[in-house]
């Protein structure tokens, strides 16, 4: 049996817009992945610890409050500190183009903007693990 891809879908920060996170969580589940959904209002510390305990392959962060430049780098840093830098981190939400560039330079693997087809996210994750 091929190993299942495990994904943590988390909502960091204070905004409660979880429509996107839940749609993505469902889509990944329907694509055969095991999705751990953390719920709302997560601190970067909670997210990193959950990711490590669950030994996930991927973390997906959804953020629409504009706090992405604080939240993403913090999660990345905590994952590194916990020896989990192998985890792929992707994001979704309202993130301006130049921030996308900065985040991707800092190790976030990909940012999916508004209007993303969930199949593209599935395809992306599968491609990362297909080699």
């Amino acid at each position: 049996m091929p190993r299942k891809i495990r994904v943590l879908v988390a909502k960091p920060g204070l905004d409660g817009h979880d429509r996107g996170a839940k749609v993505v969580a469902n889509a990944l589940k329907d694509a055969g992945m095991e999705v751990i959904y953390t719920g709302l209002h997560q601190t970067p510390e909670m997210i990193a610890e959950s990711a490590v305990q669950e030994d996930v392959d991927v973390v997906g962060l959804s953020i629409l409050s504009g706090a992405h430049m604080t939240m993403f780098p913090r999660v990345m840093q905590l994952l590194r500190e916990k020896g989990a830098e192998h985890i792929i981190v992707f994001g979704g939400g309202i993130v301006p183009v130049e921030d996308v560039k900065k985040l991707e330079d800092s190790g976030v693997s990909k940012i999916f903007g508004p209007g993303t087809d969930t199949r593209d996210i599935v395809k992306y994750i599968n491609s990362v693990f297909s080699e």
């Binding site: 920060g13 204070l14 905004d15 209002h41 601190t43 629409l64 409050s65 504009g66 706090a67 992405h68 430049m69 604080t70 939240m71």
Partner: peptide, 22 residues
């Protein structure tokens, strides 16, 4: 902004990165 909506002062730990954003 989100801290005001959630009842946190701007200098609360949970407000970091969110002050005046949305």
């Amino acid at each position: 902004d989100m801290p005001t909506i959630m009842g946190y002062d701007s200098d609360h730990k949970r407000s970091e990165g969110e002050v005046g954003r949305c």
